[in-house]
Simulated scan of single mutants.
Amino acid sequence: MECKEVEIVIYGAEVLCSSCINLPSSKETSEWLEAAISRKYKDQPFKITYVDIHNPPSAGDKKEFAEKVIEENMFYPVVLIEGKIVGEGNPKLKNIYAELEKYGYIPA
């Protein structure tokens, strides 16, 4: 089964959220996730988009969700796969992998 290229969107900020002091920054988490997913699902396409919640795109779903992260005081980074929240604060690879496999991704 051919896997569909999914979009993984990571919402975060340069400044760590107050409960995330000892965790990596949202940007570091984004880079770490990209490396981990690339290793686990070799040669399977996916797209990672990082959105700074304090400087989101000027319109669209990503802007709306960035505002929601701030308004609802969500722990960031918030990780979405195809619009579904799969991680918040300190995302777990196991949950992210499980969601990717629903889209046909096969571990290497």
Score class of each variant (00 low, 15 high):
residue 48 I to A: 12
residue 49 T to Y: 05
residue 49 T to L: 14
residue 49 T to V: 15
residue 49 T to I: 15
residue 50 Y to C: 08
residue 50 Y to S: 07
residue 50 Y to K: 07
residue 51 V to I: 15
residue 52 D to V: 02
residue 52 D to M: 06
residue 52 D to E: 09
residue 52 D to A: 05
residue 52 D to R: 10
residue 53 I to Y: 09
residue 53 I to Q: 05
residue 54 H to T: 00
residue 54 H to M: 00
residue 54 H to G: 01
residue 56 P to Q: 03
residue 57 P to M: 04
residue 57 P to N: 06
residue 58 S to N: 15
residue 58 S to Y: 08
residue 59 A to Y: 12
residue 59 A to K: 15
residue 60 G to M: 10
residue 60 G to W: 06
residue 62 K to G: 03
residue 62 K to D: 13
residue 63 K to V: 00
residue 64 E to H: 09
residue 65 F to C: 04
residue 65 F to R: 10
residue 67 E to L: 13
residue 67 E to T: 07
residue 67 E to F: 02
residue 71 E to P: 00
residue 71 E to C: 01
residue 72 E to F: 01
residue 72 E to Y: 02
residue 73 N to C: 13
residue 74 M to H: 07
residue 74 M to A: 06
residue 75 F to G: 05
residue 75 F to V: 04
residue 75 F to W: 07
residue 75 F to H: 09
residue 76 Y to C: 00
residue 76 Y to K: 08
residue 76 Y to R: 14
residue 76 Y to Q: 08
residue 77 P to Q: 09
residue 77 P to V: 03
residue 78 V to P: 07
residue 80 L to E: 15
residue 80 L to Q: 15
residue 81 I to A: 12
residue 81 I to L: 12
residue 81 I to Q: 10
residue 81 I to T: 10
residue 82 E to R: 10
residue 83 G to H: 13
residue 83 G to K: 11
residue 83 G to Q: 11
residue 84 K to H: 06
residue 84 K to N: 11
residue 84 K to Q: 14
residue 86 V to Q: 11
residue 86 V to C: 13
residue 86 V to I: 14
residue 87 G to K: 07
residue 87 G to V: 04
residue 88 E to C: 12
residue 88 E to A: 12
residue 89 G to K: 10
residue 89 G to N: 10
residue 90 N to M: 08
residue 90 N to S: 15
residue 90 N to I: 00
residue 90 N to C: 07
residue 90 N to P: 01
residue 91 P to G: 11
residue 93 L to M: 15
residue 93 L to T: 06
residue 93 L to R: 13
residue 93 L to V: 05
residue 94 K to H: 10
residue 94 K to A: 13
residue 94 K to L: 08
residue 94 K to C: 02
